[in-house]
Each structure stands twice: as C-alpha cells, then as structure tokens.
C-alpha cells in the first residue's frame, strides 16, 4: 500500500485512471512548511525522546483546507453525502438533479470501492460526474477529492455533491473540505442507527430520513430515530424525504438553494 498518500497500492482509480504521481521518497511529504515545535532530550546514550504533538489527520486536514479554499474561491457549495450502502443516495441525487435542472450548475464526485455504475447514472442526467474507485479503501479522503477536482473542474457557483463510499463508520473522520456532511438514513434500516454509528451522526449537520413512502409497511419509529440522532448531535437538522413520492423534496431543495441556511 502506498504510504505517501494512502492511495491503496495502485488500486485507487479516479475517472477510471490509476492514481499516479511522483512520490519522492527523499523529501518531506507534508505540503506545508513543517510546524513541529519539537524539542529533544536525551535518555541515555543511544536513544532520545522527541515531542511531536501532531494530529494524525493533519495531512488530510491540510488537503481539506486547500479544497475548502478552492470551493470558496469559485463559489462552489459542496456537500459530502454519507450513508450505509443502499440508503437511496444515488436515486435521491438523480431526482434532486432533475428538479434543479436549469436552475444552477451541478457536479458530482462518486465514491465506490468498485464500478462506475453510479457516475454513469449521474451522467445520464446530463450532469458531469467523476467516479473515484477506492479499491479496498473504505472512505474518500481529501487528497482523492483534490485529484477528482482536477478532472471534474466544476463550474463557478455550482453545487457539488460528493457521494461518499457507503459506510457509516470510516467517512466520519475525514474532512473533504465540504460545507456540510449530510447523512442519509433510510427507514428500512432501523431507527437505532444513530446510536449504533454515533460518530457519523455527530459529524453531520443534516439528516435526510429517506424512503419515507415505505413507512406504512414498516414498524420504523420516526420520532425515536430523530430523538436518537439529536442525542448524539443536538444541533442536527432533520428532513423526511422520498425520491419516489416527492415527499420533502421542496424542503430539501429549499435548503440547497439557501446553501444550507
């Protein structure tokens, strides 16, 4: 596995192309001047203790800040969509794109371990999309997004959706430079998911409770689910949506038009 950028030993593909760039083993790999304020003190003759005090996610966060700067400079409103597999993310996204047609430019970065099915579904709506295949990787990171942006080049003032790998655990820790994480939970999954996977619900600013057209056939307790989500994140906003019946789409589109306000 590549230890320079964690790109998964050549399995990472962006837009179908292998991820490649020079990894100069001799140089320091952080892109910013090193801010370590180390001091050393000797412990015996042969070894010494060195204070490092560096966040493990420093490098990802540096890329995320660069992405955020890029989005700000181009007026791009970026959302990081996270969920378990099968929550209806892509269907909700294609429906959203259809409803916003002609209103504002939209672009999509799709993350999956394998296949470009989702990017093809998005491109079928006429919107530009880049597929990132993480290989065995369980999440997207900010460095992958930077490379995807080089390919995608979203229009200024566009709405950019990043559809993360379907996984309610790992993507919670990785800032991609987005304005908000939006967690999508479908009512077929069980109302206790916010407690089972609290980190993701804590990281998100908005929860879309999706496929609500199926509620009459399920014993899903909406009130309890919202209560659980607010227990791990008292500030989380909640919307009930269904791409099939159109429920909640006005509210969701209103939120997008106001850029999350």
């Amino acid at each position: 596995m590549c230890t320079t950028c964690g790109c998964g030993g050549g399995e990472l593909k962006i837009g179908g192309k292998p991820h490649q760039h020079g990894h100069n083993q001799g140089e320091l790999r952080f892109r910013r001047p090193n801010h370590e304020h180390d001091h050393t003190h000797d412990h015996g003759e042969s070894t010494r203790r060195v204070q490092v005090e560096r966040d493990i996610l420093d490098k990802n966060n540096t890329f995320a800040q660069d992405n955020r700067g890029y989005f700000a400079a181009h007026g791009i409103f970026t959302l990081n969509l996270v969920s378990s597999p099968g929550s209806g993310k892509t269907t909700l996204l294609t429906c959203t794109i259809e409803l916003l047609r002609g209103e504002m430019p939209v672009a999509v970065i799709e993350g999956d371990q394998q296949t470009s099915f989702d990017a093809e579904r998005i491109r079928a709506t006429g919107v530009p999309a880049v597929q990132i295949n993480t290989g065995k990787g369980c999440h997207l990171d900010a460095h992958m997004i930077e490379h995807a942006l080089e390919d995608l080049k979203p229009a200024d003032h566009s709405l950019l959706f990043i559809e993360n790998v379907g996984n309610l655990v790992c993507p919670a820790s990785f800032d991609l430079g987005e304005a908000h994480k939006v967690v999508i939970l479908s009512v077929t999954e069980g109302e206790d998911k916010p407690l089972k996977y609290p980190d993701m619900f804590a990281a998100a600013d908005l929860m879309l409770l999706n496929k609500v057209d199926l509620l009459p056939y399920l014993s899903f307790d909406v009130q309890k689910c919202v209560e659980y989500a607010r227990r791990v994140n008292p500030r989380i906003q909640v919307m009930l949506t269904s791409a099939t019946s159109g429920t909640g789409m006005d509210e969701w589109l209103g939120w997008l038009r106001n850029r999350g306000a």
Partner: peptide, 27 residues
C-alpha cells in the same frame, strides 16, 4: 477499517520527524 489509513499517516509523521532529527531508527 480506517485505522489502516490512520496508521499510514502515523508512519509518515514518524518518518518526517525522524528525518528532521537525523535518526533512522524509532524504538
């Protein structure tokens, strides 16, 4: 299993810090 990515980041930090301090062995 994002611990794998995190462990890789830890190794990078170790390698950078060791290089800065002219060391080639971390105990």
């Amino acid at each position: 299993m994002h611990e794998m990515s995190l462990a890789e980041s830890v190794l990078e930090i170790i390698e950078n810090s060791a290089a800065q301090h002219g060391s080639n062995k971390v105990h």
